[in-house]
Amino acid sequence: MSSLNDAKRRAAYKAVDENITSESKIIGIGSGSTVVYVIERILQRGNLANKECIFVPTSFQSRLLIIEGGLNLGDIDQYSEIDVTIDGADEVDENLNAIKGGGACHLREKVVAEAAKKFVIVADYSKKSSTLGEKWKQGVPIEVIPFAYALVIPSLKRLGCENPVLRMAKSKAGPVISDNGNLIVDADFGLIKKPKELLEKIKLLTGVVEVGLFVNMTRMVYFGNEDGKGKQYLFK
């Protein structure tokens, strides 16, 4: 196993063990490669898998993981108050702000994160940076309704993104379509020193549904380090 995957597993295990307790009844499950290990650990802890816990997914991927694991599947429509949500991230800065949406799931991820009493991120050491945009070079993922795509692109340029890019699918001709039927625009703003300010400006654009900037939301982050050990960072 590569050190990267080992780091993800160690961090995910630590996050599950320290944040999903006997009092956790409703649990949000995020998306991405790290979340596979979150489900793996939940299943290893039979007391979590067998009791009456409800697991709320953020994507088709996490929904399948929950179903295939034989866990109790719930929906945000049924459970608008979640005890803890564990999710991955594409990049996390020193203030625990994050960029998410590399998998085009950030709208549902943000809904499930905001519904949680505690939002926890699990990531490997390659996702840790001092400032957003330092390591994640693909740009801020922005979910846009198809009808407004042509309007949003020039608006993003006026906000400082030189080349907003409509995300294209790799295995079909055409753009990536989110689970909500929308398009994804990746907007590179370089180093993002004021993520809250940028988030607010983008959200005000007509046609924008959600932005992959998660600001002042994360309670704690577990980074899997290069030595394979997981390290916890608390919200400042």
Rank of each mutant, 00 (worst) to 15 (best):
M1A: 13
A7T: 10
K8P: 02
R9G: 02
K14M: 14
A15Q: 00
D17I: 13
D17M: 11
I20L: 09
I20N: 01
S24T: 15
K25V: 13
K25M: 12
I27R: 00
G28F: 01
T34W: 03
V35R: 00
V36A: 08
V38F: 01
V38D: 01
E40R: 01
L43Q: 03
L48Q: 02
N50G: 10
I54E: 08
I54G: 01
F55H: 05
V56S: 05
P57I: 00
S62K: 03
L64T: 11
I67S: 12
G69D: 08
L71N: 00
D75A: 14
D77I: 07
Q78R: 12
Y79E: 07
S80Y: 12
D83Y: 05
T85P: 02
D90Q: 07
E91A: 06
E94V: 14
A98I: 09
A98H: 05
I99E: 00
G101Q: 02
G103Q: 09
C105P: 00
R108C: 07
K110E: 07
V111P: 03
V112R: 04
E114N: 13
A115T: 09
A115D: 07
A116Q: 07
K117E: 12
V122H: 00
A123N: 06
D124C: 09
S126W: 02
K128C: 05
S129E: 08
L132V: 01
L132R: 03
K135F: 08
I142A: 05
E143T: 08
A148V: 09
A150R: 14
V152D: 04
L156A: 07
K157T: 11
G160E: 08
L166Y: 11
L166M: 13
M168S: 13
K170M: 11
K170I: 11
K170W: 10
K172I: 14
G174H: 02
P175R: 04
P175Y: 07
S178W: 00
N180E: 13
I184D: 01
I184A: 03
D186N: 11
D188T: 04
D188V: 03
L191N: 07
L191D: 03
K194V: 06
K194M: 10
K196D: 11
K203Q: 13
G207K: 01
V208E: 10
F214D: 00
V215D: 02
M217W: 07
K229W: 06
Q232A: 15
